[in-house]
Each structure stands twice: as C-alpha cells, then as structure tokens.
C-alpha cells in the first residue's frame, strides 16, 4: 500500500515539474514609462528578471534600472552581448544601464552565467 502511494506521489511530482517548467506560462513583460524625451523601466532581479521582456520606443533615450534582491552569485552580473555591456549588480542597489534605442529589434540580456534571460524589444 505504501509503495503504491509512493509511486503515485512520485509520478504526480514528476507531472507537476514538467507542467510547471515546460508548460506554457505567461512571461512577465512591461513597456517603459516615457517622460518627455526619456524612457525608463525598472527590472527586479530576483530568481530571474521581472519583467522579462521590456518594450522600448525607438529613438527615445532609454535607461533600464536593475535592482538585485537576489543574494545568489548566479545573478550578480547582467550581460547585454549585443552592446558589450557586462555590469556587476550590487545587491539591493539600483544599477542604471543606458540602452541604445537607435535600431529596432530584439536584444537579449542574460545573467553572468547565461542561465537567466531577459529581452529588450525596441520598436
């Protein structure tokens, strides 16, 4: 009897893991707030990025403000490979990163170990 329960619980756990990590889930995204001639967006770094997708307007100078709440070494840097940006993120401090919005497109960012990803969409 215990064995049947163990198997059922185990299989249920596997099912849950597959659904939770591989199922379709909505990605948190946000547009930047635009003021007069600037736009900015806050990104919370905690077990990943929140939002994971930031939409920016083309041609308006933009700043992304990263705040790392997460103590993990995994997220202690943010890398934008397309722009050669590799910036350390101090815990609980705001790190402002200026984004070149001259060309439209999708630009990925990642943590220093390339495990967590985010994306800037310029249009």
């Amino acid at each position: 009897m215990t064995q049947v329960v163990t198997i059922l619980v185990g299989l249920a756990l596997i099912g849950f893991i597959l659904w939770w990590f591989f199922g379709k889930h909505e990605v948190s995204s946000a547009a930047a707030t635009v003021t007069a001639d600037r736009q900015a967006a806050d990104v919370l770094v905690d077990g990943g990025y929140k939002p994971e997708v930031v939409t920016l307007k083309q041609g308006v100078p933009a700043t992304l403000r990263f705040t790392r709440k997460d103590p993990s070494a995994c997220l202690d840097r943010v890398v934008f490979p397309d722009w050669g940006i590799n910036r350390p993120l101090a815990q609980d401090k705001v790190e402002e990163i200026t984004i070149d919005t001259s060309k439209p497109g999708e630009y990925e960012w990642a943590c220093g170990m390339d495990m967590f990803h985010g994306k800037v969409i310029i249009k």
Binding site: G47, G48, S72, C74, M115
Partner: peptide
C-alpha cells in the same frame, strides 16, 4: 545555504530553475 533557497523559490515562482 539560505540564499540558495531564496533564489530557488524566487526562480520557481517565475517558472525557472537553476543551479541554486
């Protein structure tokens, strides 16, 4: 070990998982 748990939980809520 607490920071590992913190990150793991935060990542879990975002449907992510990593080494932590």
């Amino acid at each position: 070990a607490w920071p590992f748990v913190h990150t793991a939980w935060a990542a879990f809520k975002n449907h992510h998982a990593n080494m932590d």
